[in-house]
C-alpha cells in the first residue's frame, strides 16, 4: 500500500479520497443521529408528525382564515401551506442541526481522525428522515382533499437536492465559526425564527408586490419553496424564473463559501474545539 505522509497541508491533498474511504462512517453517524433522535420519548416518532401538522393548522387559520390571503389557483390553503412547510422544516432543521454538529461531536473530533465534512452532512440526514415522514402526511392530505398532482411531481427530488445544498452551505460556515466562537449557537435560533416569517411558508410568494419580488428571492429558500409548490400543486402555481435563478445563485455561492471556510479550518478543529 501507499505510504501516508503527514506534513503541514497534507490532509488537504488527499481530501476527497479520504472522504470516499470513510463513507461507511457517514452511514453510521447518520444512523446514530436518527436512532437517538426520539429515544426516551413517550410518543417517539409521532413527534415528527405532530409538529408539522400543528404548525400547518395554525398557519392555515391565521393566514388563510383570519388574514384571508389568497392561495395558489384553487388548491386548498392547508395544502399550499404544507407544500411550503415541507422544504422550510427540512431547511431549518438541517441548518440548525448541522451548524451545531461539530461542537456536539467535540469528543469525536478531538480523539479520532476522519474527514470532518462527514459530521455536518450526516446530521442533515436526520432532517431528511423527518422530511420523508412529513411527505407521507402530505400524501395523506392530498388523498383527503382528492387533489391529483401534475407531471411536475417527478421533479420534486431535484428541489429536495437544492434544499439540501441550501442548508449545507450556511450550515458548514456556521459550524466552522461555532468551533471557535460559541456566539453562533445563539444566532441560529434567531435566523430560523425570523426565516419562518420572511419566507413564504404561511402564504404564497405571489402576495409579494412585483417590484420587491427579485429582492425577496435573495432568500435562498424562496426559490426552493416556490419550486416545491410548483411540483406539488401543479401548473396552478408558476415559478418566478428571475427570482428562482437568484435563489439558486445565492445557494451556490453559500455552498462554495461554506465548503471553502470549512476546509480552511478543518485541520485545526481539534486544536480549538
Amino acid at each position: 500500500m501507499q505510504p501516508i505522509i503527514i506534513e503541514p497541508g497534507s490532509s488537504a491533498r488527499r481530501y476527497w479520497r479520504d472522504l470516499w474511504q470513510y463513507r461507511e462512517l457517514f452511514q453510521v453517524l447518520a444512523w446514530r443521529d436518527i436512532s437517538v433522535r426520539y429515544k426516551q420519548t413517550v410518543i417517539g416518532i409521532a413527534w415528527a408528525v405532530i409538529r408539522p401538522v400543528l404548525t400547518m393548522v395554525v398557519f392555515t387559520v391565521i393566514f388563510g382564515k383570519i388574514a384571508k390571503l389568497p392561495t395558489v389557483g384553487d388548491a386548498p390553503y392547508a395544502l399550499m401551506v404544507f407544500a411550503g412547510m415541507l422544504p422550510w422544516t427540512f431547511f431549518s432543521t438541517a441548518l440548525s442541526e448541522s451548524s451545531s454538529s461539530l461542537v456536539n461531536n467535540a469528543n469525536l473530533i478531538s480523539k479520532v481522525f476522519f474527514p470532518r465534512l462527514i459530521v455536518p452532512t450526516a446530521t442533515i440526514m436526520v432532517a431528511f428522515v423527518d422530511f420523508l415522514i412529513s411527505f407521507f402526511i402530505l400524501v395523506a392530505m392530498m388523498i383527503w382533499y382528492q387533489f391529483i398532482p401534475g407531471w411536475q411531481i417527478v421533479l420534486l427530488p431535484l428541489f429536495v437536492g437544492i434544499a439540501f445544498l441550501a442548508s449545507l452551505g450556511p450550515g458548514l460556515w456556521i459550524t466552522t465559526l461555532n468551533v471557535r466562537y460559541r456566539d453562533f449557537r445563539y444566532v441560529i435560533p434567531f435566523i430560523v425564527q425570523f426565516g419562518l416569517y420572511i419566507s413564504p411558508v404561511g402564504f404564497s410568494s405571489s402576495v409579494i408586490p412585483e417590484k420587491w419580488r427579485l429582492l425577496y428571492s435573495m432568500n435562498p429558500i424562496v426559490g426552493v419553496i416556490d419550486g416545491f409548490r410548483w411540483c406539488i400543486l401543479g401548473g396552478e402555481s408558476s415559478i418566478y424564473w428571475p427570482g428562482f435563478l437568484t435563489s439558486l445563485g445565492i445557494t451556490a455561492f453559500f455552498l462554495w463559501f461554506g465548503i471553502r471556510q470549512f476546509r480552511r479550518m478543518e485541520s485545526r478543529f481539534a486544536d480549538f474545539i
Binding site: 505510504p3 501516508i4 503527514i6 506534513e7 503541514p8 497541508g9 497534507s10 490532509s11 481522525f113 481539534a270
Partner: peptide, 15 residues
C-alpha cells in the same frame, strides 16, 4: 500521528 491535528512543520511517513 493519528492525524487529529496537523503538524506546523516537519513530516511523518507512515507505511
Amino acid at each position: 500521528l493519528s492525524r487529529i491535528t496537523e503538524p506546523t512543520r516537519g513530516r511523518i511517513c507512515l507505511n
